[in-house]
Design a protein around this nucleic acid. Structure first.
Lengths: 131, 131
DNA sequence: AATAGATTTATACTTATTCTAAATTGAAAT
DNA sequence: ATTTCAATTTAGAATAAGTATAAATCTATT
């Protein structure tokens, strides 16, 4: 079932996510679609985001905020959120395998994956703070 | 401001969280309060959970589900969720310091903390599956 | 052109949580 | 003991994010 049916709506949603660098929420995506002259139903945007997520063309991020965010990078990676300005950046350093093994031993679980949300202060906010 | 004012309601909420081993949601806490003969307002339970969280007597967990869960263990640790039965267990193995350092170097962030949600299959579900 | 299946639309609904304004409680001061 | 005042609780309305539904529309195939 890897048939992918990209309707106008799904393509437009995909384009917005791909061209965004800030991990937009569904509401962000909606606004950007309107800016581009589209006017899709509320539910269609959610449907499209889910469809694209199911087809693994985008990823849904749950970073502990109320709304999910979406990411066009689908390779395995984590995220870091700035406590000051709220920006979200990618973390490419892989979670250490040995730690995962340790967790498996400790818990008796078969460990499949790790979702990590780091918190800290981004470079920009750090330099602003120095004054 | 470390004055802690434990009203009847807050104490009862705290007791429920402390005596639960399954990381209850606000709704779970509400039900358990009713079982114990209490009948507090809806908002009071949320207020109390927030109060206790602010005073660092309990921790709020955002594990990617729609509802927050609460944990009476306040020492630094992570969580693992079973993909089959949904149970949530503690992970005491600390996130490797060197990985955090690596992330700091990679991102330019000052890294403060890591929230990790692992996913896998718990021991019980693994043995059930073997049949 | 006719049909069927998938998709979109508009809108209603759900769930989790927060907000609000009035009522209640409880500690401190008279 | 009574007054007072802030903190807290209550009941219920409001909000935010997302899901469900049923009718309308689109699209591919006969």
């Amino acid at each position: 079932m890897k048939t992918i049916n990209l309707t106008t709506q799904r393509q437009a949603v995909y384009d917005v996510v791909c061209e965004s660098v800030d991990h937009p929420t569904a509401a962000d995506v909606m606004n950007r679609l309107v800016e581009r002259g589209h006017s899709f139903a509320y539910g269609t945007v959610y449907n499209s985001l889910r469809y694209l997520t199911d087809k693994e063309m985008i990823r849904e991020l749950k970073l502990g905020e109320t709304a999910s965010r979406y990411d066009a990078r689908i390779d395995d990676h984590q995220h870091i959120v700035c406590e000051i300005c709220g920006r979200v950046d990618e973390v490419m350093a892989p979670v250490p395998e040995e730690w995962m093994t340790q967790v498996a031993e400790e818990t008796g679980y078969e460990v499949h994956e790790a979702h990590v949300v780091l918190e800290g202060v981004c470079a920009e906010c750090r330099s602003k703070r120095k004054k």
